[in-house]
Design a protein around this nucleic acid. Structure first.
Lengths: 242, 242
DNA sequence: AAGTGGTCTAGACCACCGT
DNA sequence: CGGTGGTCTAGACCACTTT
């Protein structure tokens, strides 16, 4: 029948946890269809209504997509999705445009204490470190530094000096099985350092928007740190409060 | 039975709209209890499950609060709620502290074209204009300019020069029947103007985080514009992406 | 004890999609 | 057409709060 019961959480929450685990472990691959609701209900020994409520939770967290008449699918990190949910920068008129990337540096190093801490690693752990510039409509307005734990991204490397249009989160999922589920950002205004100012074509000391992000995977473990510097002469960071 | 049917939306959505309308129009006052689910179902001629789904939608949008064993209540803008949902500034250690306010200017003026546009008003419409400083833990780190349409806030005024601890959104709801349901923010980094720098105890040209907000009421009409300038020496703006 | 929202079930029927 | 998710119903029972 079901092995769920000796757990104090509601049945639908336990069901959601089981399904979520299957997605996280790759039992159902990104993009693939999961069984119909009645099948899941029978397999897990709960009523269809309970499965429905569980799927509703996964859908709200964007782990699955349900399409009437077609089925329910494990969410895949498409460029559109990454762009829409995880890229909060628009032009002044509110237009969202896909940026391109130009990798400046990509290296694997031993983490300093300061680098290790935000990712929950021990000092000295292997870390990939990336620096890149991003262009929107041809203008370099973003500088980005990214840190990735080697343990989660074995052999990670990006081609230095080449133009990239793919979103990194699509690549993380496709090449390393890491799905970014959510992120926390802390914003500040800073004065541009000389080298960063040069890369962005600004005066030293020009105001820049600094966006410090920690991104988490499906199990809510921190898997990426990135610090973005944005020239807000022609762009804005947007947020919705509700 | 029910007057809902000749509408293509699902029953639960129509039910949600009816209940939402009652809240927006003040038929049920903020803080008051609304009838039990079975009563609503009987009154509206739908099943209890449909009412439940409608209430679920209102709860997600934080228009109501449901408490098991007690009842369902129209959400009131408490200071805690305003602080938690609409105040995204924390200290560097992540601590959230309630700011106090010091009103510098409060006047009623005719809107310029630039002031009228974001609020969807005609140029020349009456507008309340407020400028205030906000202190966190005794330190002045925030400057704020606020614009309110006179039509929605008749007779609005704040005491200049006195310390305020109440959140404005609590006051909007209590004194003017305006409930803020959501807000959009656009962020940029700017260089401090001479007078603003003076008020914050900074050098002219110091980087400041500019937060431009439009706040919307229950019917999704823009009712407040505010521009916040934050000194990010000791504070951060936080955002969650999911 | 009475009254409230929360959970869980079972089933009918609708709307949409692909073949 | 068969299969999928979406809607709607009706009712039993549980957990919590107040009297």
């Amino acid at each position: 029948m079901n092995a769920l019961r000796p757990d104090s959480r509601p049945l639908y929450a336990q069901t959601e946890a089981i399904l979520m685990r299957r997605i996280a472990e790759g039992f159902w691959a990104p993009g693939s269809m999961i069984p119909p609701e009645p099948d899941l209900a029978a397999e897990l020994g709960v009523s269809p209504g309970t499965v429905r409520k569980a799927l509703g939770g996964l859908e709200r967290r964007r782990l699955i997509e349900r399409r009437q008449g077609r089925g329910t699918f494990v969410a895949a990190h498409t460029s559109e999705r990454a762009l829409f949910h995880f890229f909060r920068i628009t032009a002044l008129d509110g237009q969202r445009r896909a940026p391109t990337s130009h990798v400046l540096e990509c290296a694997t190093v031993a983490a300093s204490a300061e680098e290790a801490q935000p990712l929950g690693l021990a000092a000295g752990a292997a870390l990939h470190r990336v620096k890149r510039a991003r262009l929107i409509a041809g203008a370099a307005c973003i500088l980005e530094r990214i840190w990735l734990p080697e343990a989660r991204f074995p052999g990670f490397a990006l081609p230095v000096g080449r133009e990239m249009t793919d979103e990194l989160y699509v690549l993380y999922q496709r090449d390393h099985g890491v799905t970014i589920a959510r992120a926390e950002e802390r914003l500040a205004a800073i004065a541009a350092a000389p080298d960063d100012a040069g890369l962005l074509g600004l005066e030293e000391g020009a105001p820049l928007l600094e966006i410090a992000r920690i991104a988490f995977d499906l199990q809510d473990r921190p898997v990426e740190r990135r610090v973005t510097l944005l020239d807000t002469a022609a762009h804005r960071y947007i947020a919705n409060l509700d």
